[in-house]
């Protein structure tokens, strides 16, 4: 009996376009749901997670001295051979890099230099906007690396931002914490 009812129901649904109707209600519902678009350069910007591997940075110790001891392990382990270190010895007999250059055009951001470093001196930070018109500008020296932003403390959010093209192209953020992007994802 129930099978007969089921089959009759299937036929009635087929004749009245039940499947089409459910498709149209679905798309109509989606039309009034909130878009998940992140309006990146104009209004919003993504804050990376703390584990994000962005632009490299060099750390300083408590005295403000560069932590790097110029052991060249990062240069040795680098799979694309993009780190160049030249050591020198200061008056106290400590080794430091005289030259520390990373060619970010060749870097694949694997993070092996961070893992290999015995002095915890190099890491991959949160900056991800460093495109350039010239590949020569992508070779970053020691002093620039010391000034780069470190790891993100809080991350994984979308913050309000503003595109500033007055002299340089900049996406300025105004708030430290944003909303969680995943909140707009519709799960049915």
């Amino acid at each position: 009996m129930s099978r007969v009812v089921d089959r009759a129901g299937t036929w009635i649904g087929w004749a009245l376009f039940a499947d089409l109707a459910s498709a149209f209600t679905l798309t109509f519902g989606y039309m009034f749901s909130k878009p998940v678009t992140m309006q990146y350069p104009d209004k919003e910007k993504w804050l990376p997670y703390s584990r994000y591997r962005g632009h490299h940075f060099l750390k300083r110790d408590e005295e403000g001295e560069i932590k790097c001891v110029a052991c060249e392990l990062c240069a040795r382990i680098c799979p694309c051979d993009c780190i160049e270190v030249v050591p020198y010895e200061d008056e106290n007999g400590n080794r430091h890099p005289a030259k520390f250059e990373i060619d970010t055009a060749r870097c694949l951001f694997c993070g092996l230099c961070e893992d290999a470093c015995p002095a915890d001196a190099i890491a991959l930070g949160q900056q991800y906007e460093f495109s350039s018109f010239s590949s020569r500008d992508l070779v970053i020296g020691r002093d620039d690396l010391l000034d780069k932003p470190g790891k993100a403390m809080t991350g994984g959010g979308v913050v309000a931002a503003r595109l500033n093209t007055d002299e340089d192209v900049l996406v300025e953020t105004s708030e430290p914490h944003g909303y969680n992007w995943w909140r707009n994802i519709r799960r049915t």
Binding site: Y30, M31, F32, S33, K34, P35, T37, Q39, D42, N184
Partner: peptide, 14 residues
């Protein structure tokens, strides 16, 4: 616009 909103996008905005 309709295409964008049905696919949870925004369509042209700029």
């Amino acid at each position: 616009k309709i295409a964008g909103h049905m696919q949870q996008r925004m369509g042209p905005m700029r």
